[in-house]
Design a protein around this nucleic acid. Structure first.
Lengths: 128, 128
DNA sequence: GTATAATATACGCCAGCACGAATATATGGA
DNA sequence: TCCATATATTCGTGCTGGCGTATATTATAC
């Protein structure tokens, strides 16, 4: 099995979970620290941490430590097929009610997003 | 959890397997019957059949019976996010050595593809 | 009817992952 | 040093899905 297919498979596995999809949807708007993620998604902290670790191992997110806080942001994967699929998922998530509600809940705690680092370009609109 | 996210998750799960990715890569070129799929991929027939059933349950492929043969082709899912992700995967698969080798092995048994039904439009090139 | 070819399903086994709960590991401050 | 906060990891459990093998189904031909 060639490496390209394996990378693509690993990316799809990493995205194939509702919690991780919601996290990716939030991160599309810029970097966020773990506490805001699990508050916005209304999930237990260990759950958020576990899924973030999964995404990081898959190379889809990167971290930046700032004192006690750890900020997560979307990565720019090297593999072109990984970027294509990640872009597609990020884009469609923007249209989802769940992601929009998560974003709304987030901005209640974080009035202004501090950074847009890691935001990915939108390739094409799916119409949805 | 809203239905849109669930549909997206189910699609990603269906694609997150190397065998199913190779099948989708083959089907991008038009409909194929089961026997040619398992020959081109050099996998046991029950394995091909199982994965095809999985893809069908996820709504990513459709079938057409013709005597003893059952031809599979890519579906045009209703959900826009599903189409977007499927398109992305199909497109990147076209660039993969494994898929190109599968296609080459297929055309050895099937000199000319009979139909292009089910072929999906390419939205954007990933450069890979 | 019976035989044969193409396809689908059932079975038993094993690996991986999601979960809640509890605990461990930082980091910064008094 | 000791405490508090933020984050990460571990443990035990249940479920899902992959595999090879064997068998069942469906359709055609004789």
């Amino acid at each position: 099995m060639d490496k390209r297919i394996y990378e693509l498979q690993r990316t799809l596995e990493a995205l194939a979970d509702p919690t991780r999809l919601r996290i990716v949807g939030l991160l599309a708007g810029g970097e966020i620290c773990v506490c805001h993620i699990h508050e916005a998604l209304q999930i237990p902290q260990p759950k958020a941490s576990r899924h973030l670790a999964y995404l990081r191992q898959a190379g889809l997110v990167e971290t930046r430590r700032d004192g006690l806080w750890v900020h997560y942001r979307l990565a720019q994967p090297e593999d072109a097929s990984v970027r294509t699929v990640l872009n597609a998922a990020v884009h469609t998530l923007g249209h989802m009610p769940t992601s929009q509600a998560d974003e709304k809940r987030l901005t209640k705690h974080v009035p202004r997003r501090l950074s847009k680092r890691g935001r990915l370009p939108i390739v094409a609109c799916c119409g949805g």
